[in-house]
Computed example of a mutant assay.
Amino acid sequence: MIPLLTQISSHVHILPSDAERDRPNLGYIHGQNYSMLIDTGNSQAHLQMMLHEIEKAGFPAPKIALITHWHWDHTFAMHAFDGLTVAHRKTNQILGTLTQWEWTEEAMAERLRTGEECEFCDTHIKVEYDDTTKIKVVQADIAFNGSTAFNLGDVTVEVTPITNPHSDDGVVVYIKEDKVLFAGDADTGDFYTLDGGYDPDRFYHYINEVDKIDYETYIHGHLDPMTREAVRAFRKQIEDEEL
């Protein structure tokens, strides 16, 4: 079934994730003055699906896309976004490296051999792309350092980098008036250095920091939206199985 735009709160909608193609939840924040995407998706086709659903719902096209972290499934449609893209400085630095990558079969195999790429990502990139040479990686138009915030008119978007077990550049995005938090994949394991496993120090640091935020709904990159109670149960499962 093709995922449809799903309302989370007054100002927040998502296009639900698709595990088969490793497409994450994409967010849409509808403000009075302008609207914003959370992540652009893993391909132009993924982004276009999101934009089509936004248009079909009668909402204005987003003018800004905010990136949660550098991984391919969140960023490979940046080049196709007709607006400004915004990312943390660390994310933009990593994307700068990826702009030099070639996407031939030989180059991808070499990155797997050296560990620059992980097997999970390589596998799903080949599911999403019939022709990987069509992949185009770009840096964000605007890079920020530390925390930042956006006033969309009647809704505030607060962006905070937090050390986490998934990626060194991850930020969380809090829609203040709606008490909705986009976590990216921050509480997922590290697929690049730990084969999907967890560094306990980074995991518990993330929990301690993110739970200071007054969220009621938690949007993980690849799971259904969760209440705080469901988040606690999710983390308990991680502790029991991974730590």
Rank of each mutant, 00 (worst) to 15 (best):
S35H: 02
T148K: 00
E102P: 07
L181D: 03
R23G: 01
T85V: 11
F144L: 02
I142K: 06
K212M: 13
I213P: 06
L152G: 06
T104D: 10
F76M: 13
A87C: 12
S43I: 09
H74D: 12
T123I: 11
V171Q: 05
Q32S: 10
D122A: 14
F59P: 02
G115E: 04
G58N: 11
D195P: 02
H52E: 14
A233T: 12
E117N: 06
Y129S: 09
G153M: 10
E239H: 04
S147G: 01
E119R: 10
N164Y: 05
F203G: 02
I175R: 07
P60M: 08
T227F: 07
K136A: 06
N151I: 05
W101C: 08
R228L: 04
P24Q: 04
W103K: 04
H71P: 01
S147I: 00
F191N: 15
Y204S: 05
V127P: 04
G41V: 08
E106Q: 15
H69V: 00
T114S: 15
E106W: 07
R202I: 01
Q44N: 08
P24F: 00
R21N: 09
I207E: 13
Q93R: 12
S167E: 12
N33S: 14
L15F: 00
T123W: 05
L4F: 13
L112N: 05
G146R: 06
A65R: 03
K179Q: 15
Y174V: 04
I125S: 05
N33I: 08
H166A: 14
E128T: 12
K56A: 14
M1K: 13
E177G: 05
T133Y: 04
A143F: 01
P3M: 13
K136L: 11
T85N: 10
M36V: 14
V127D: 10
I94E: 03
L66N: 05
L181Y: 08
H220L: 07
D168R: 02
P3N: 12
V172M: 01
T148Q: 03
D169Q: 01
M36I: 12
N25A: 08
Q93I: 07
F203P: 02
Y198H: 10
K126F: 00
T97F: 04
I175P: 05
T99V: 13
Y198L: 06
R232G: 02
N92H: 03
F203Q: 03
G189C: 03
G189L: 02
T160I: 13
Q7N: 08
H71I: 15
F182V: 01
G41L: 09
R111T: 10
L194P: 05
G196E: 09
G197Y: 13
H71S: 15
T97C: 00
D199T: 06
A143G: 09
G184L: 08
D39S: 14
L5W: 03
H74P: 07
V159G: 04
T217A: 02
F182H: 03
S17M: 11
N92S: 11
E177N: 09
A140G: 09
T104Q: 09
N151T: 08
R235E: 15
T163K: 15
G196M: 08
E20W: 02
M50R: 04
G196T: 06
H222F: 13
E209Y: 06
R23H: 04
W103C: 05
G189R: 01
A186L: 12
H46V: 14
P3E: 12
S147Q: 10
I207C: 14
